[in-house]
Write a protein that binds this DNA or RNA. Structure first.
Length: 580
RNA sequence: GGCCCCGUAGCUCAGCCGGAUAGAGCGACGGUUUCCUAAACCGUAGGCCGCGUGUUCGAAUCACGCCGGGGUCACCA
């Protein structure tokens, strides 16, 4: 039940009626007509811009349209008042029974409130994390993981058929480097001193890999040339890294549906097929790139290469798919991989990338739109940096030195719920400060705590009511005499609850899960506000001597809890029932 | 130099598929506890929404151009 959508439908029906009566021209485009919560509470409970957007096409003054529309709307039993205001806004007030009914509606279908069919079952693929399988996940990956997972939950909640996917970059040079690094740890496991040459991965996390190699291969790989062990060690180490990454993701509450391997694309003809498909569209040619402009290019040399015509799609230059030595560039398997996603029948693709990949956006969008004949959309969300702060100091991360804060460190210190919530308290394309001191604090400074605390208060009310012998299951609460929720402060809180489906829809349309976190904070704030007003006005307390009134107020609290739990569910954060 | 992101209160940031007098938290100042957890709440002060032009009945929001900050830029994935 989306009250705003219902009222918009009423506005549209009323406009149709005016058109049928000849009061408005027929055939007006009503797409721009909206019904929204007004920013200022003094402007009624809902406002529509209908008169203003229709004034020009209808050739009528906006206030005249608004007046006519108001008269029609007032014939609906739900509408209490319809006032023309400002340049032609129509401010609506609804009968309290409409708002009160929403509480009952929420409690009748607690799992359904806010869900929608917006996605109408379209298949969407969310590719995220896709960290190289060369080490544990660190903080930067954590944000992408959280945003991707929350987005996947949000879309599933909104009617999409979602696949979560991880693209394993196990086909390039970096997994050879991993193999060489692991081999040194294997030697170390045999008591030899490892030679971690420049460019190898120095991290301690490879020590267990070396030991596992020893356990499996004994001494058989010692004193052998690289070509005799590289493949085996690489596959072995990559598997161990992926196992570790899966554990890290699981610790964060993230489960992938599909792991796609880059390596598996080689030698199967899939890369060739993808490039062939592009060639048929005249998007592949053999040529030489211009030297890059404005950048120091000492070692640049002209080179004939197989190129993708990404400039046709607004890219700065065409992009090579083959290296000078004839091997594929990393871009070639990317083409095949996205071709593969298109062929698997997805209607929408979403990639969550680190902001340092911004340069790849255009070419990938070009590939998807070309290979799907514009059937499939690709949205790429770029995730900005996370700055870790501790005691007011920036925690330095250095991968090269092997000292970096891993996702696991973070989870061990503050828990997965805090990591997830905090990572969603910023728009994803804005840098985020993760302050250890703040997020473990139990105060309003800490939004995780604040929202959890609101939910704990809801549960506290239910607990006490139950102890007092009241029936507080959802059906009983839904059947309460909700007309007792007649105080403006209570109706205002219901108004906030009414915004939930609309908010979810906006967040889903924009692929912006952070909006959920902000909404929850606002809802918690409104709820805490009402709670505290009970200190001054006993009539506003949730628990009353009058059982009928009490049950209605408890129903309201429970409805708040339902929405908070639904929102936390989308964020992947566990609601707590008590703050202990 | 090209491309991408950002520029909103002292600080950290929402709002941006155009809507009315631009919001929140922190910090500052002043209040609130016979009462369901004061781990909370209420109030006050604080703004050329980076600058300019354009589109529009209407611009923080859209377009273009500047200024400032960050990221990134063939043959590494």
């Amino acid at each position: 039940m989306n009250l705003f959508a219902e009222m918009r439908a009423l506005v549209v029906a009323s406009l149709d009626r005016l058109a049928a009566e000849g009061a408005l021209p027929a055939g007006l485009d009503l797409a721009a007509v909206t019904v929204e919560p007004p920013r200022d509470a003094g402007h009624g409970e809902m406002a529509t811009n209908a008169a203003m957007v229709l004034a020009k096409p209808a050739g009528m003054p906006p206030r005249a349209i608004a007046g006519a529309l108001a008269a029609v709307l007032l014939t609906d039993p739900r509408v209490l008042a319809a006032d023309v205001a400002g340049p032609g806004f129509l401010n609506l007030s609804l009968r309290p029974s409409v708002w009160q009914g929403l509480v009952g509606n929420i409690l009748t279908q607690p799992d359904g409130y806010g869900r929608s069919t917006l996605g109408s079952g379209r298949k969407v693929n969310v590719e995220f994390v896709s960290a190289n399988p060369t080490g544990p996940m660190h903080v930067a990956h954590a944000r992408g993981a959280v945003v991707g997972d929350a987005l996947a939950r949000l879309l599933a909640f909104s009617g999409w058929q979602v696949t979560r996917e991880y693209y394993v970059n196990d086909g390039g040079g970096q997994v050879d480097v991993l193999a060489r690094s692991a081999y040194e740890r294997y030697r170390e496991a045999h008591g030899l001193s490892p030679e971690i040459a420049e460019g190898l991965y120095p991290g301690d996390y490879l020590i267990p890999v070396g030991e596992a190699l020893k356990a499996k291969y004994g001494v058989s790989l010692l004193d052998k040339g690289e070509q005799s062990w590289l493949t085996e060690v690489r596959d072995f180490a990559t598997d161990m890294m992926m196992a570790m990454i899966r554990e890290d993701l699981a610790a964060l509450g993230v489960t992938m549906d599909v792991y796609s391997s880059e390596k598996a694309l080689y030698g199967t003809g899939q890369i060739e097929a993808g490039i062939e498909a592009l060639r048929k569209l005249d998007l592949i040619y053999h040529g030489t790139l211009e030297p890059p402009k404005g950048k120091t290019t000492e070692d640049w040399e002209a080179r004939e290469q197989t190129l993708f015509r990404s400039t046709r799609f607004g890219d700065d230059q065409d992009r090579p798919v083959q290296k000078a030595d004839g091997g594929w560039t990393y871009f070639a398997p990317d083409i095949a991989y996205h071709f593969n996603k298109v062929e698997r029948g997805f209607d929408e693709l979403i990639n969550i990338f680190g902001a340092d990949h911004s340069g790849y956006v255009k070419r990938l969008k070009a590939v998807v739109s070309a290979l799907s004949q514009n059937r499939v959309t690709l949205d790429i969300k770029l995730i900005q940096l996370v700055k870790l702060l501790k005691g007011g100091q920036i925690v330095k991360m250095s991968k090269r030195a092997g000292t970096f804060v891993t996702l696991r460190d973070l989870i061990d210190e503050v828990g997965p719920d805090v990591v997830r919530f905090v990572m969603l308290t910023r728009k994803s394309d804005v840098a985020l400060d993760f302050d250890f001191d703040k997020v473990t604090e139990q105060s309003k400074d800490n939004p995780v705590f604040y929202v959890q605390y609101a939910n704990a208060r809801v549960n506290s009310i239910l607990r006490k009511a139950r102890e007092a012998g009241l029936a507080v299951d959802d059906p009983s609460l839904a059947a309460a005499d909700l007309s007792r929720l007649d105080h403006p402060a209570e109706l205002a809180l219901i108004g906030k609850l009414a915004e939930w489906p609309r908010l979810v829809e906006i967040a889903a349309r924009g692929n912006e899960p952070h909006r959920i976190a902000f909404y929850l904070f606002e809802l918690a704030s409104d709820f805490h506000g009402l709670w505290n007003r009970g200190n001054d006005e006993a009539g506003l307390r949730f628990l009353q001597d009058d059982q009928v009134a009490s049950q209605a107020k408890i129903a309201l609290a429970r409805a708040v809890g339902v929405v908070i739990c639904a929102g936390l569910g989308i964020l992947g954060v566990t609601p707590v029932e008590e703050m202990r």
